[in-house]
Design a protein around this nucleic acid. Sequence first.
DNA 1: GTACGATCTGGAGTGCACTCCAGCTCAAGG
DNA 2: CCTTGAGCTGGAGTGCACTCCAGATCGTAC
Lengths: 138, 138
Amino acid sequence: MAAERFSIGEVATRTGLSVDTLRWFERERLLLRSVSRTSGGRRVYDTADLEWLHLINRLRTSGMPIARIREFAGLVRSGPGNEAERLAVLVEHEQAVQVRIAELAEHLAVIQEKVRIYGEHVLAGTAAGLWAPVAGND
Amino acid sequence: MAAERFSIGEVATRTGLSVDTLRWFERERLLLRSVSRTSGGRRVYDTADLEWLHLINRLRTSGMPIARIREFAGLVRSGPGNEAERLAVLVEHEQAVQVRIAELAEHLAVIQEKVRIYGEHVLAGTAAGLWAPVAGND
DNA sequence: GTACGATCTGGAGTGCACTCCAGCTCAAGG
DNA sequence: CCTTGAGCTGGAGTGCACTCCAGATCGTAC
């Protein structure tokens, strides 16, 4: 219980998102419902809002497009009965992240190899000719 | 030797980049020099061009911004004497990729945990209440 | 009651990385 | 020759994800 309430500024601080981005998320229907307001019209976020924001921020920073997050939010918003669909979205994204990590690992290996070879030549002062603009052309 | 020559279409096929993107890379000065031409004005890429394209495509798909690739190309283009700077660009990117992989791995772990828990509930038919729009509010 | 920082709305603007287009030329096959 | 597909240029357009206003209001501290 003890439902905590946060201003948009506090939520921005806690999530690392900007105030503008938080309002934009809402307009884009990424939240489960429109945030409640004070009598004066200011947004009041509760703990559940904050948790949801942390989740979709994680999805977002791990590469899920906003449109897909909107779909996911739509599924959750429409209540029970579509849990399998929600799960499918998560599983698909899980796989996408795994693929991305594998790609990055391969890129990293190649870059590290280049760094190693290039670094040795730089140390030895014999780097000339590596990616030289006119390397060995007649 | 046996300097192979490729049309822009062949290069597109081999790199996975579109013909438009290849021309755009050139305009953006990401290449080591402007590609040579046939008498009729068509671009002719050689093996070195292709190798360079593979490298910068790797940098690009692993998250290096185009502006940074342009800087790197500029260093290489300006000939010998700045190898340490070139190496620094690569090392910085290597670290950026490592950071990104670590971030993604953390996101993946959280998502996998959610998939696991959510999947169990879906299987058991008791998913209601997970991210329900009004879960447990008074 | 006043100052002032936070928040409000609707809409315009930005940055990045392409992508598409019109109108044209080139080159290989029949 | 003629057709047809690939390639050419310069410039405009697109998609995504924010980001930044202007002009007004709210609310807490003095």
